[in-house]
Amino acid sequence: MSEITPELVRHLAGLARIEVTDAEVAQFASQLALIVDSVATVKAAVNDDIKATSHPIPMANVFREDVVRPSLTQAEALSGAAESESGRFKVSAILDAD
């Protein structure tokens, strides 16, 4: 069983700016652990002969025409924002100008 601690879930939720209750933290911790364990199971079955697969169906070169399609309006785009100002999303300042 992987070590997905409640602290780790809270940290991730904080980074993603998602509010979580204690009940949710417990629920997500066990769900995330299950996912990580499943990956570990798959990993154990893989040897050097098996190529990494990112897509289950062997297909390539699926392209879109370079033609503009309607976008959302500014009001629609901002309708789900916690805060907005001058047509932009308003977010907390993060000290890292990268």
């Binding site: 879109r64 503009v68 399609r69 976008s71 959302l72 500014q74 785009a77 001058s86 047509g87 932009r88």
Partner: peptide
């Protein structure tokens, strides 16, 4: 996505899901 690639438009008008 099919949003327009244009410089200088009103903010958040060339955006989609």
């Amino acid at each position: 996505c099919g949003c327009a690639n244009v410089f200088g438009d009103e903010p958040n008008t060339n955006v989609c899901p």
